[in-house]
């Protein structure tokens, strides 16, 4: 059991109350994230309705294999995160650290693949808004499609970055053996956040890459 952090905050009556309060608070935060990204999906739906031909023509320039690998990378990171949470609940600290490290690794691979995709697009000039300078003709409003593409994947990437920071923080706390069966709320909270980031990508991938 940990020495540095007192597990029970002074204003809670019991650990159970603190645990379920933290879980409820996290689920509220996830509900807010769902609504936050719903704005982007709404914009996607609206502009797909306005300019169907742009979405069809422009998505050819998105690399489906890279997108698919990214999906698999994120799914595996979701698995390792779930195993990390399970390890914390069982008190297997070594397993916890390994799984956290794996999740962190997969997250970095995801961002690296994203980097390649972005640089490929920048090279081709398929940039959002007024920076759009691609030579081959895409009907309708291609600058709008790529604007949407960069905002959606960029914002998602930002959430992946935040997730990596938080996983690292948990990893450090795991190093001095803070988590065990009695107290593992932070690990579970971070796990919930990471799974939501994965769920958002699960919807982003088909909508952006596999438009048909």
């Amino acid at each position: 059991m940990s020495r540095r952090y007192p597990p029970l905050a002074h204003h809670f009556l019991s650990l159970g109350q603190q645990y379920s309060a933290a879980k409820l608070g996290m689920w509220l935060f996830l509900a807010q994230e769902v609504l936050f990204f719903s704005g982007l999906f709404m914009a996607y739906a609206a502009f797909r309705y306005f300019y169907p031909e742009t979405f069809l023509a422009a998505h050819e320039h998105l690399n489906v294999t890279l997108g698919a690998t990214n999906t698999i990378v994120l799914l595996t990171s979701s698995l390792t995160m779930a195993l990390a949470v399970r390890a914390a609940q069982l008190g297997q600290n070594k397993q916890l650290l390994i799984n956290l490290a794996l999740t962190f690794l997969f997250a970095t691979t995801f961002l690296v693949i994203k980097y390649f995709e972005y640089s490929h697009k920048i090279h081709l000039g398929l940039l959002p808004g007024k920076f759009y300078s691609a030579h081959e003709h895409i009907p309708g409003q291609p600058a709008l499609f790529f604007g949407l593409y960069f905002v959606m994947t960029g914002l998602h990437g930002l959430h992946v970055l935040v997730g990596m920071g938080v996983i690292a923080w948990i990893f450090i706390r795991g190093l001095n053996r803070e988590f065990g069966p009695e107290y593992n709320t932070p690990v579970e909270i971070v796990g919930l956040y990471w799974h939501l980031v994965d769920v958002i990508w699960i919807f982003l991938f088909p909508l952006l890459y596999l438009v048909k």
């Binding site: 807010q32 719903s38 769920v199």
Partner: peptide
């Protein structure tokens, strides 16, 4: 992912209602 990895399956009904509620509002 939500029901197994995020353990929504064995969570309090309020958390489930919350997540489903946010999707309904979306």
């Amino acid at each position: 992912v939500a029901s197994y990895f995020m353990h929504l399956k064995d969570d309090t009904w309020f958390n489930i209602m919350l997540f489903v509620g946010s999707i309904v509002f979306m």
